[in-house]
């Protein structure tokens, strides 16, 4: 059954359509990985203009519900969590318990080229400049966490000028560069410290630490990559989830 759009409501048509289509995905009427109807079909289904359909779809892509594949069409994102209880979390500058005890020091803010795996993870060519930021997080006198961030320069060139001591990278991307973060993929693994990181931690080379890799998206675009190394000390990596009411 097609849910109708109300033309009496003040809410913009595309936002109404966005909510209707979002429900189709959340209710699994449109299943993960399947192709959705074409723009023309949606225009006919909801008796709205192509611009309205396009804006609604664009927003669903931005929010991570849909992905566009060049020359193939628009599909329901397989990574979209379609079942289970939905919880929310708050993005904090650092994911540890006792976060108030942590102080940060920006050790590096420079520009480089994304070689090898970085180019793949950011989904950009190796000849595209990226901003590289390294932040040391101290609990008391020791470095407890090292955060390495890699941001394609075209995403937010202003980052180079900004003071990172008082604001987070995500805040700058959202507030100064107008980038809306729509999803973050988190990967946890054990990492053996290389020489350079070992030196920063004041630990021996190959010492094991936890590595949390965060791939941060706006729609389908990876806007930056975070590599967060946590050493073994009295604090732990900590992420709180709260039931979505």
């Amino acid at each position: 059954m097609v849910e109708l759009i109300s033309r009496d409501e003040h809410e913009k048509l595309y936002l109404q359509l966005y909510e209707i289509l979002k429900k189709k995905i959340e209710n699994q009427e449109w299943k993960a990985g399947t192709q959705i109807p074409t723009e023309e079909q949606l225009c006919n289904m909801f008796k709205v203009s192509r611009a309205t359909v396009r804006n609604a779809i664009l927003e669903l892509v931005r929010q991570g519900y849909l992905i566009r594949q060049q020359g193939k069409g628009t599909f329901v994102n397989k990574d979209y969590i379609e079942s289970g209880i939905i919880f929310t979390t708050i993005l904090k500058p650092i994911f540890v318990n006792n976060e108030t005890n942590y102080k940060k020091s920006v050790a590096t803010k420079t520009v480089m080229m994304p070689l090898d795996i970085l180019s793949n993870e950011l989904n950009i060519p190796e000849n595209r400049h990226i901003i590289y930021i390294k932040i040391l997080w101290f609990n008391e006198k020791n470095v407890s966490v090292i955060q390495e961030s890699f941001i394609p320069i075209n995403i937010c060139p202003q980052l180079l000028e900004e003071d990172l001591g008082a604001q987070s990278i995500i805040d700058i991307l959202e507030k100064k560069c107008g980038i809306k973060i729509t999803k973050i993929h988190n990967y946890f693994e054990i990492n053996l410290l290389n020489k350079e990181l070992a030196l920063s931690f004041n630990l021996p080379e190959n010492h094991p630490v936890i590595l949390l890799t965060q791939k941060v998206f706006s729609g389908d675009t990876v806007v930056f990559l975070n590599k967060i190394y946590k050493r073994d000390d009295k604090d732990k990596l900590f992420i709180a989830f709260q039931r979505k009411l």
Binding site: T110, M112, M113, L115, P125, E126, N127, Y132, E196
Partner: peptide
Amino acid sequence: HIPYWFSIEQVIKVMKA
């Protein structure tokens, strides 16, 4: 652009790319 701690091998990769 590269940082000074890149190895010559990494520079070669940058130049090739």
